[in-house]
Design a protein around this nucleic acid. Structure first.
Ligand SMILES: [Mn+2]
Ligand SMILES: [Mn+2]
Ligand SMILES: [Zn+2]
Ligand SMILES: [Zn+2]
Lengths: 143, 143
DNA sequence: ATATCATTTTGTACTGAGTACAATTTTATT
DNA sequence: AATAAAATTGTACTCAGTACAAAATGATAT
């Protein structure tokens, strides 16, 4: 079969369009933060994002990172992950999927969720906006 | 059918035994905290617990509440719930069940979980100690 | 281009849930 | 009653996140 390989590229135009498509006006910081999130799927903390983007933008402030995170959350570009540690983590994948948080190395792993069977009667009439599944324990390489 | 009605009573002896059964030496504070948790199944915050127990023990310190919470967590008397708000909440029910956190009134509702169907291959060899399911949205009385 | 307005970014001070830890009080043991 | 162990308290501290006004950048009008 003949065909073109579609390469996922994170050039500036792609990143700009990604933001615009999500209702966010592109700016240097927002583009860099988005690029970092797309390339580093490690569920980073705000600190992680700051340290990475600071390399490119040495005038970067922590507040700008938090501003960007808040904006991205609001526009559903990212979702927040609260593992129980004090630092929140952020995920560019906003689909419903499970997270395993390792108590030793603190890494967060993704896993696919097929379905959650639960008693819907208690939540009758409730508006469910988010469904989060968090497992905790010890990962394979730490045990 | 003739029979005895077994009344669940939270008298001092019951509470003491509850603690001892979970490997915790009873003390005035621990008994009062346990009693509050058993009688008020509202997934309270540390502040909630402090305010309630302070009524009975006016010398109570916040540190003692946190000490007790940490001990109860360690002995699996309670589980922690992180809803994304800054204050953690605590649950005397340590079984696996779902929590719905209302974004308006901040109440946390329980719901039963029958099963979570997920791709186990990614977590192969992982030790899973906790399984937490958190839904967020707007509850029936707030919408 | 220049001025004017809007948005973004920055710096600083602040908040508050939770923690560290030594001093004190209470409880158990000799 | 003296001693040791455990529980409780008070105080100072941490630090992720927030509030907010000043500064910088970008967009629009003249
Ligand atoms: Mn994820
Ligand atoms: Mn519960
Ligand atoms: Zn690990
Ligand atoms: Zn509500």
């Amino acid at each position: 079969m003949e065909g073109k390989t579609i390469e996922k590229s994170f050039d500036t135009q792609y990143l700009k369009d990604y933001l615009i498509d999500h209702g966010v006006k592109p700016s240097t910081i927002r583009i860099k933060v988005l690029e970092y999130l797309l390339k580093n799927r490690i569920h980073p903390t705000a600190e992680d994002i700051y340290n990475a983007v600071y390399e490119d933008i040495p005038t970067l402030s922590k507040t700008s990172v938090y501003n960007t995170i808040d904006l991205f959350l609001e526009k559903n570009i990212i979702q927040i992950i609260n593992t129980g540690n004090k630092e929140s983590r952020y995920d560019i994948d906003t689909s419903i999927h499970g997270h395993f948080s390792c108590n030793i190395c603190n890494r967060v792993f993704d896993f696919d969720i097929d379905s959650i069977e639960y008693d819907k009667s208690i939540l009758d009439g409730f508006i469910i906006n988010e469904q989060k599944v968090l497992f905790k324990g010890i990962c394979n390489s730490c045990k």
